[in-house]
Design a protein around this nucleic acid. Structure first.
Lengths: 340, 340
DNA sequence: TTGAAAGCGGTACCAT
DNA sequence: ATGGTACCGCTTTCAA
């Protein structure tokens, strides 16, 4: 335990040459031993000396040098900006990352915030990733994809509402959530549908798509829709509730369960009967929504497992498809409880 | 727009030599131009030719080669495993990452899942990061810290409940949350305090610490405590509520607001009067907790801004302190509403 | 069984 | 104002 806690930082990290010197062998031998190179047989005593020397010096190979020499990396870049919030996507991406690690990739979650479009693609390309996975909200342009592929990326995969030219596309379409909600409300006889659009910036992207989904479904069924900006604060919900009757709405899709719970409480405080006067539906199937009275109706979202996504990326890396592939990852269906 | 979408991937990425050839200059000149090297004057026509050539080829510098030559990186590694869930930490880390980017660091969020302790430290060290920031639950050992520093990391910063030898330490002590909750309950006359311990694996680390915090506070005040394992499911909460009266508890700290809401609903369904018979307090100050009746008491957690953390890391990188520094990042205080 | 040496891509010194 | 060139640390022929 009395190991020196802060070793002199002046001297830089030991290299394989240092190990070689200490072990009395050449750098080549060090490389053979530490990588267990099968094509070359090194005597056991030598192996031990090399290992001991590496251990003693605290030798750690230099990833940059290695991949420079190798001409490729096992790096998968995943921009992390503007990920949909909530526990579900979080689990999904955690699982995805874990599975990629299992497949021996180094996952680099690159905070693309503050870079726009092609700048970001350039920054990722500098790392010479073997694959790039872009979650919704971080889609590169066709030009960005081209740049990445030219710089050696064997697969560029985008998740989101619409494909990018040249990239694999895994549909993860938030519009479906809105559509499922709208269809549910319409089926239950509602014809004047409000759609909560969060004032908060984070889910702005999702919000627009969910609204689009509602509109598409409602337009086809002759229902009218009204966008309702609302902040995630009690005052904002109360203000919206106060002018509720004036809107003449008989149903509302509240973006997600949290906004739905907030709005439903405000409506109740205002004396609006849910679901008699106004049906309320959220999305995400939060457990908490089931604790309210009336129990909150919701849209349940089923995403493919992170593991399947990881396997897909791996397959695209190993046998790059001639043409971009296109798969569907998300299903959304309304769950009727009591609030609608 | 009819740019070829998938350029031939056979040929590898263009190098500065390719740019030099196309522009009819040397590699050195290319480097000077593209880096705007101040110490060297390059004529305007040459600059233009080089830029045009780089553009035409889609040249992107090779980060590994550059940092190999430079002898250092601007990479900050942040292991991402087992981050406390919830919107608050998420925002905190997002802001932190954004600020680091602003300071021109490349944030690499390294999924350390599946690696244990020193293995993980080794994996990080291979990237030769200039700094490593370990959120709670990913603390390296003293040996790991030593390894990282030997491999060139100018700062190793840990956030969490206890310090690691040799690393900077920013206290982010979950125990305080438990302590604040316990003190609140005790102050309101409760002497038999239940502590919900989630059965879910993710917040296991936090759970233990919060429980410790409760115990420390309760022991000092002569109150007894009981750990109450509970899963985040209605059935589990109902089961706990069903045997509630037998426990003789008159107060409960429910780990966080979500578990608190779940348990409170179950208690109410069982006919237990909250707060008369049993006081309930959560943590996190979720907005949703204010929507319940009775309104949920909670522990509000104030964390320092991500920006201040980023500035701290930057300072440690620029002027490495002789001794590890130690700062306090978290304050917790109970907020009394109606459930306690 | 081991070593010498070439080179991956970029930078920066020293010439010219 | 530019070019030649020696590195950075590692892998991998090829020779001995």
């Amino acid at each position: 335990m009395s190991q020196t806690p802060r070793p002199p930082v002046g001297r830089s990290a030991p290299t394989s040459a240092d190990v070689a010197r200490l072990a009395g062998v050449s750098r080549a031998t060090v490389s053979y031993v530490l990588n267990n190179t099968a094509a070359v047989r090194i005597s056991e005593p030598t192996r031990l000396r090399v290992r001991a020397a590496a251990e003693e010096l605290g030798y750690v190979p230099h990833a940059a040098a290695r991949s420079l020499r190798a001409g490729h990396t096992r790096t998968v870049v995943m921009p992390s900006a503007r990920r949909p919030a909530g526990p579900l996507p979080l689990r999904f991406y955690d699982e995805f990352q874990g599975e990629l690690r299992r497949l021996e990739y180094t996952v680099v979650e690159y905070g693309g915030l503050g870079l726009d479009g092609d700048e970001a693609a350039r920054a990722w390309a500098e790392l010479r990733p073997v694959a790039v996975v872009c979650p919704g909200g971080t889609q590169p342009t066709a030009h960005g994809v081209s740049l990445l592929r030219r710089s050696g990326a064997r697969a560029v995969v985008t998740l989101g509402p619409h494909p990018t030219q040249g990239a694999h596309f895994l549909a993860l379409d938030e519009r479906r959530i809105g559509a499922a909600a709208a269809e549910h409300l319409i089926q239950r006889g509602r014809r004047a549908i409000g759609v909560v659009v969060p004032r908060e910036p984070v889910p702005a992207h999702c919000a627009r798509l969910r609204l689009e989904g509602v509109r598409a479904a409602a337009d086809g069924a002759g229902a009218r829709t009204v966008a309702l900006p609302m902040a995630y604060e009690e005052e904002s919900a109360a203000a919206l509730a106060a002018r509720w009757r004036a809107t003449g709405l008989d149903g509302v899709f509240a973006f997600d369960d949290e906004y739905a719970m907030l709005l439903m409480r405000a409506l109740q405080d205002e004396g609006v009967d849910v679901p008699r006067e106004t049906a309320v539906i959220g999305a995400g199937d939060l457990l908490l929504g089931r604790l309210l009275r009336p129990r909150l109706s919701t849209v349940r979202v089923d995403t493919v497992s992170g593991r399947r996504l990881a396997d897909f990326v791996d397959r695209m890396v190993r046998e790059p498809a001639a043409e971009p592939e296109h798969h569907d990852l998300m299903a959304a269906r309304a769950v009727h409880r009591e609030s609608s």
